[in-house]
Amino acid sequence: MNARRIWGLMYRHLVLYRSSWPRLLETIYWPMVSMLVWGYTSRFFAARMGSPVSVAAGALLGGVILWEVCLRSQMGFSVTFLEEIWSRNLGHLFVSPLRPGEMLAAFSGFAILRMLLGVVPTALIAWALYSFNLFKMGPVVGLFVLALLFTGFAVALMVISLIMRHGAGAEAMAWSVMFGMAPLSAIYYPVAVLPHGVRWLALCLPSTHVFEAMRENLASGVIDWRQMAWAFGIDLIWLLVGMMLFIREFRLARISGMLVSIGE
């Protein structure tokens, strides 16, 4: 791993975003809109139904913010790869000394920056408008964020592997795949609400365990280490699967010639 090469690729994307206000706006806009909608919804229910709902409202807002961590990190990673396809720059990157691992590290670094750009204003809105302080849960928030980042990266690795196999035609996966995961991730409700038949599936998602732990923390102030261990354990498996898929598809793309024609 060479830090300068990683920075080189990150610099390319930083410059791109710095000079493109639509890209910056898109990064900030959706998380803020989501927070405004759910914030007023939760305020309405809390005002109507009293303090027991206030805890649920807090869980809802916490869910909105933390889900954005997962969603934005996945999208940030996948879209950074797609930017290279759209600009037809992959041919130059893959014949430079940039290792695939360094490319992934640069995508991860840039995805974190993109995620922060979307999530920090969202958390500030939650605090300013709805008096919800994400950090009142304590330092464990850092672990929640880390676990959800890993989930986002693992899904992104699978998405870009699919793009390497099927070309830019598979790019819609970059936006849609996480929305499919959302109902099973139990972001706004406990897993117990889900039908029996799909609970096992929900429990295979690392994000589900993070949101279960978050609700427990907001309700009782207790850190559910068991849920966090599940979250990180499943993340590890997902990341390994994502890496293996990426390595396999990268090699197949070098055999099929997809790396030369991936923009088409």
Binding site: N2, R4, R5, W7, G8, L9, Y11, R12, V15, L16, S19, S20, S87, R88, N89, G91, H92, L93, V95, S96, P97, L98
Partner: peptide, 26 residues
């Protein structure tokens, strides 16, 4: 390698593009 059929990123200036590759080639 150079080919007119492989683009450099359009939204970066020439200098920024060369800087990126300066980093990538150390």
């Amino acid at each position: 390698f150079s080919s007119p059929y492989v683009s450099l990123p359009f939204r970066l200036t020439v200098r920024q593009n060369l800087r990126v590759y300066g980093h990538l080639y150390n």
